[in-house]
């Protein structure tokens, strides 16, 4: 599908006013009325990490460390909003606020992520897939 074709798919089919529809200040979250496919009516539940991420968000929110409205704003400002899943958005927004509010620096977070990632032997994106394969018993 071409870029133009992909964009055309997002136009509302309902004849809404063009200015509202295409305004440059319309955020990626403001999707009421946008064309979309059928709803997947099955509830796929939450993975463990998502439940924990949600609880982390809720704990911080309950303590007033992050406000609900700040989380929403940080989410809406994510460059990749439209490509991310719900808890990926929540987590990314929380990251923005934690750094913004000085609870951690980008460097600290990166270092801790490297440490966490190492526990699972998850190869980083720099490591060649061929090398990983060769390392397997």
């Amino acid at each position: 599908m071409t870029m133009a074709g992909a964009k055309a798919k997002l136009e509302a089919p309902n004849g809404v006013d063009e200015m509202a529809e295409k305004h440059p200040n319309r955020g990626p979250q403001d999707i009421g009325g946008r064309k979309a496919g059928p709803v997947d009516v099955v509830d796929h539940g939450m993975k463990f990490w998502e439940r924990q991420a949600n609880a982390l968000r809720s704990t911080l929110s309950g303590k007033g460390i992050v406000k609900r409205d700040e989380l929403r704003r940080a989410a809406e400002d994510l460059r990749d909003y439209s490509k991310l899943q719900y808890f990926e958005i929540t987590t990314s927004a929380l990251r923005t606020l934690m750094i913004e509010k000085g609870y951690m620096t980008e460097q600290e977070l990166k270092a801790k992520m490297d440490e966490v990632r190492a526990r699972f032997d998850v190869p980083d994106e720099m490591e060649s897939p061929l090398k990983q394969k060769a390392a397997q018993p």
């Binding site: 993975k47 990490w49 924990q52 991420a53 982390l56 911080l60 808890f87 990926e88 987590t91 990314s92 929380l94 990251r95 934690m98 609870y103 951690m104 600290e108 977070l109 801790k112 992520m113 440490e115 966490v116 990632r117 699972f120 032997d121 998850v122």
Partner: peptide
């Protein structure tokens, strides 16, 4: 499978806090 980058990010933030 292995945790996603976001799972790792969330876990890392929690541990720092």
């Amino acid at each position: 499978g292995p945790p996603s980058e976001f799972a790792i990010m969330s876990r890392a933030m929690q541990e720092i806090l």
